[in-house]
Design a protein around this nucleic acid. Structure first.
Length: 154
DNA sequence: GCCAACGTTGGC
DNA sequence: GCCAACGTTGGC
């Protein structure tokens, strides 16, 4: 059992969009970074804990608790010729990009980036490190516990 | 395999 | 919209 922080832009898929989807589940499409892909493809297991993070928006922060709901499979958007995630080098025989499904567990009162930054216990969190732009990062179990038990309300 | 150029991320 | 940081690309 591992824990992850996964960033999504609310203008694309926010916590309320996720809540409105069938099974409250979304394919985590569009990841085009190898390290993030490898986390999904090689390490994620069904049931892993996910912090659903809103990025690139007015109020960045953790917006919900979710879980990994599938193992990795080829990201359908890499084959969509007219889509923004099309990859001409990918073929169905040799896909390049993979995604898992992520299912909402519960929406929470936003734990803002500012709160995370001012919490000494979370100093080591990868998301808070200078220059980190990885959209999927592993979470220390201790950080998961601290955040879900001490910072999450609602 | 180096590395400059370029594109993207994402907070502010 | 700015810009620092970082990843990827492609010429050599």
């Amino acid at each position: 059992m591992r824990y992850w922080l996964m960033k999504s832009e609310p203008a694309d898929v926010g916590i309320d969009d996720l809540a409105a989807l069938p099974e409250q589940t979304v394919a985590w499409y569009g990841v085009r970074n190898y390290q993030a892909r490898n986390f999904m493809r090689d390490q994620m297991q069904i049931g892993d804990g996910v912090l659903f993070y809103h990025s690139n928006c007015a109020q960045p922060g953790i917006a919900g608790i979710a879980r990994v709901a599938s193992t990795a499979y080829p990201d359908a958007t890499q084959f969509q010729r007219d889509g923004k995630y099309f990859d001409p080098k990918a073929t169905p025989e040799t896909p390049r990009w993979f995604n898992v499904d992520v299912q909402l567990v519960k929406k929470i009162e936003l734990v803002s980036l500012a709160t995370l930054r001012t919490t000494p216990e979370l100093e080591q969190m990868r998301i808070l490190q200078r220059g980190n732009h990885l959209s999927i990062t592993p979470l220390d179990p201790a950080d998961w516990r601290f955040i879900t038990e001490r910072l999450v309300r609602g």
